[in-house]
Design a binder for these strands. Structure first.
Lengths: 250, 250
DNA sequence: TGAATACGTTATGTATACAATAGCAGGGGA
DNA sequence: TCCCCTGCTATTGTATACATAACGTATTCA
């Protein structure tokens, strides 16, 4: 295939990884479905070697599962897997918050976090919140969590949290909020924002235990609301990633 | 290279991964050192494709680090990275213990754990503990922790703990104990064994918070002793993995 | 008619060839 | 003498060819 157009600005491996992840998360590839290398080669435009590297990375990321007889399939997740992932992430973020509090952070380091907070406050003034504003919220929330994680100054912990966040639905707020009706989401967002505020306060005052506790509560709120949201699945299509859940095996 | 002898019983990728991990952990490859693919091909006996897959896996595992200009280098760890990893693992195992306690486990499921405990008790009767017995202890301790993790019945959590345990020095007891003089280790092992006993008791009685707390304390004991052990580095060569630490960059 | 076996097809695992880039060394100019 | 530019070399990134194993299908025998 000589006429294949190659984008040299980004490695074929990364390109393939992004494309495949996109296909999985968008639901083009269903959970349990075997991923054909040849098919992936065609859809991604990369050749087999980078595609295989991408598949290995996605397996390590937790999105794929190796088939004993060879090849990979899209991993299927149960409702409990998802709530466990949320709680897991909350636990790790709790540790990060505690590290930040105990190790101390300067006012300058907290500045970006507070800007995030203020921006979210601004969004939450809308009642009810618009779809656009909600989308902005999801971005800002992710940013807040990433910044908080960084504050721990612990590379191993940051790495682990990144891994735990690889599964998009493990991101508590973004996931759960997307599922609730936007009107209901408003209340949840307000509580979540309060959690954000408290964790900053705790870190500022070097209250490690409090910082940790509030992040764990943050996750438990998400789990609780996940259960509610799953009870009436009206908003299950708000996040493409949810296609994963629909076909979950158990 | 036609005369290369190929072992078909295990995949070349796995073979290469094991061989490379061994080289890293044994210290043949020093932290910060670039891993040459060609060299890896020669030492592992696999060709470049499986070697590359193994390198990607080891990177995801946290043993290697990608070099921006291409290729991989052995990751270097600071003392804080190591103590953070221990605390991280303790936190995750604490969550696992809590899950086990809250979700309930049958007496039959606790049986293997108790057998482990009894076997360790047997070893600890020796005063001072012999090198052989200590080696058995390390194995039994790893088994105990693995079984405990399983009790959580949470695939995402088990997966994450496995990842966190990939770094061998993140295994609290095995690592810290190896560094302390064996005579000192005896006391530490006895306390660790008490932790083990308490976590089982807590799980049996469905005391989630207590189960979690004791596992975290277990890790903190390890961190504390790590600091002590690093102060007088007499036993740094007991575990080959420690070669990593010697050349840690910061 | 059903089950088992054999054969063919297809997909993955592996090896290697080719291409491109980064790093280094040597030489020339300022 | 020092710096920069150019060319070479070595190593990685990518593509593809080949081998092998698994799965499906068809045919035959009981």
């Amino acid at each position: 295939m000589a006429e294949r157009e190659v984008d040299r600005s980004v490695s074929q491996t990364v390109k393939a990884q992004l494309a495949l992840r996109d296909q999985i998360l968008s639901g083009s590839l269903r959970p349990g479905e075997r991923i054909s290398e040849l098919q992936a080669v065609e859809t991604t435009g990369a050749s087999r070697t980078p595609v295989r590297m991408a598949l290995v990375r996605l397996e390590e990321e937790g999105l794929l599962e190796a088939i004993p007889s060879g090849g990979f399939m899209v991993k299927a997740f149960s409702e409990r897997d998802i709530s466990d992932s949320i709680e897991l992430r909350g636990t790790l973020e709790g540790l990060a918050a505690r590290f930040a509090a105990e190790r101390g952070v300067s006012a300058r380091e907290l500045e970006p976090l507070k800007e995030c907070l203020a921006a979210i406050d601004e969004l939450l003034r809308q009642v009810p919140i618009s779809v656009d504003a909600f989308s902005s919220y999801v971005t800002l929330n992710a940013r807040f969590h990433a910044l908080l994680t960084e504050l721990s100054r612990s590379p191993p912990l940051i790495r682990q949290i990144d891994r735990a966040s690889a599964l998009p639905f493990a991101s508590p707020s973004a996931f759960v909020m997307a599922q609730s009706a936007l009107a209901e989401a408003q209340q949840i967002l307000i509580i979540a924002q309060e959690h954000h505020r408290v964790v900053i306060d705790a870190i500022e005052n070097r209250e490690g235990a409090r910082a940790e506790a509030v992040m764990r509560e943050h996750a438990r709120l998400a789990v609780r609301n996940l259960r509610l949201a799953l009870r009436n699945r009206t908003h299950l299509d708000l996040l493409p990633a949810l296609a994963l859940i629909n076909a979950a095996t158990d």
